[in-house]
């Protein structure tokens, strides 16, 4: 656990790609707020560039992406790549949504920390972020 952290963990919640709704992302944003996180919500239809630009300006500890459209293999590794190229080496990147098991290992190999499928509780996600988000001075 993260007992030495005196400031809230900052999380960017983003919807990459062309999903038509963001119900799940909003429920998660609200749930994380209630878990004591500072959540920056960016809305629908974001490109990887927009997500990384926002994450850089906000200096977040975690980028959480929700994706249902099936474009995860194209979009999620790109976010990791762009983040690393900007020097954001210590930002935790995680994803959730509809992602086939067969792709999970590939995404993890590409630098996505964890993939949360349907049925995951907010408590599980909050616990994972607390455990794996970078520490700050």
């Amino acid at each position: 656990m993260d007992d030495d952290r005196s400031t809230p963990i900052r999380v960017l919640i983003a919807k990459p790609g062309l999903d038509g709704h963001d119900r799940g992302a909003k429920v998660l944003a609200r749930g994380l707020r209630d878990e004591g996180f500072e959540v920056i919500y960016t809305g629908l239809r974001q490109t990887p560039e927009m997500i990384v630009d926002a994450a850089e300006q906000e200096d977040v500890d975690v980028i959480g992406m929700s994706i249902l459209s099936g474009a995860h293999m194209a979009l999620l590794p790109r976010v990791v790549e762009l983040s690393r190229s900007r020097g954001m080496d210590d930002v935790l990147i995680a994803a959730g949504g509809i992602i086939p098991d067969a792709d999970v290992a590939k995404l993890k190999a590409a630098g996505i920390g964890e993939i949360f499928g349907p049925g995951t509780s907010i408590g599980q996600i909050a616990g994972y972020f607390r455990e794996h988000a970078r520490r700050r001075a």
């Binding site: 809230p8 920056i40 960016t42 926002a54």
Partner: peptide, 18 residues
């Protein structure tokens, strides 16, 4: 109560994100 927050001001600003 929790110290958490939701900040949504970026939603309207994403056209300027890049």
């Amino acid at each position: 109560y929790t110290g958490g927050a939701i900040m949504g001001d970026r939603i309207r600003m994403m056209a300027h994100a890049a």
